[in-house]
Design a binder for these strands. Structure first.
Length: 309
DNA sequence: TTCCAGGGGTAGA
DNA sequence: TCTACCCATGGA
């Protein structure tokens, strides 16, 4: 990754230059933040009035409260309290995490080109739609996906908030080690995780004892099919979760079939009639490797039009 | 009470 | 490979 320092002054004016992170062409900060529900999950906090994403983060073992803004050709993460840059020694780690959070290493040009050929999807280019907001680490995203299964969105938000409060340090999302300090019963009782506590506990302890190797499991040299199978070996991750994790890698070959997908396709294309998953999925076959994003863009626009986002 | 929400794991056919 | 059942939680 390229490192650079920007000469752009902070909002305080007299504060020295801050480190900015360059973004790909046509990157849209706000659209990426609002791409799906992740910006509503702790430790993210989005200020719509300021168009700023706040997030506590541990860098080099030290806690920082980040204030992340976008615009122009860069993302600007600074310390929330002072507006100054994160100390130089932490910039490589910060860049790595920001790159994952905003999918800066994902090439969206092919999807945009395909979307131009569909009257219902031409808007995605103008909106800068395509990148999904992710957690700072794969562990964070796996935990969050587990908390979305078989429950309501409000319960998901509360589960994640409680995990951060109970296990995390200084408001940051906990590491596997921090989660593994607690028993599955502790997590279930105090974070109200239900049966999901066992999966999240198994994930954290597996990473710590070495039986789960997230780097190997997420090895990008695998084909998408191999990666899908690989993600499914994680505790609490089935077809829905694996498809979601692939999307966070920028791979959209698999649609995460859940109650929301079924509701959307049933209402939009089948006049509310019940149809099989296979029939629903067939509708998106023509999108090839962009199936999930094609579906998600349709749902995203429905959310936006109904002011859910 | 019963159902079900951005499902997953397992046993049995 | 497919189906049925169970799994905590909490709102409708």
């Amino acid at each position: 990754m390229v490192r650079q320092r920007s000469a752009k002054p902070s909002s305080a004016g007299s504060i020295p230059a801050v480190a900015s992170i360059p973004v790909p062409p046509a990157f849209n900060f706000e659209s990426t933040v609002l791409s799906h529900g992740w910006y509503l999950l702790a430790p993210f906090r989005w200020s719509n009035a300021e168009k700023i994403l706040y997030r506590p983060e541990i860098l080099g073992g030290e806690a920082f409260h980040l204030k992340i803004s976008g615009g122009g050709q860069a993302i600007l993460p600074v310390l929330a309290q002072t507006g100054v840059a994160v100390p130089e020694k932490h910039l490589p780690e910060l860049r790595k995490k920001i790159t994952r959070m905003f999918q800066l290493d994902v090439d969206m040009s092919e999807f945009v080109a395909v979307a131009r050929t569909s009257d219902d999807h031409v808007w995605v280019e103008r909106a800068g739609f395509g990148r999904l907001l992710c957690g700072a680490t794969l562990f964070e995203d796996v935990v969050k996906i587990i908390t979305t299964t078989n429950t309501t969105w409000n319960q998901t938000k509360r589960m994640v908030q409680r995990i951060v409060e109970k296990c995390g340090r200084d408001g940051a999302f906990p590491t596997p080690k921090e989660v593994s300090h607690f028993t599955a019963d502790d997590l279930q009782r105090d974070c109200r995780l239900g049966y999901r506590a066992r999966s999240i506990h198994a994930l954290a302890t597996g990473i710590i004892d070495g039986s789960i190797d997230l780097d190997a499991i997420s090895d990008p040299s695998q084909t998408t099919e191999e990666l899908f199978k690989s993600y499914r070996t994680l505790p609490g991750i089935g077809p829905y979760g694996a498809a979601h994790l692939l999307a966070m890698d920028g791979r959209h070959d698999f649609i995460a079939v859940d109650s929301e997908f079924r509701r959307f396709v049933r209402d939009r294309y089948h006049k509310g009639r019940r149809v099989s998953d296979k029939t629903m999925l067939r509708r998106y076959d023509k999108w090839g490797k962009w199936k999930y994003l094609a579906y998600w863009s349709e749902l995203w626009r429905e959310y936006r039009d109904s002011a859910v986002l």
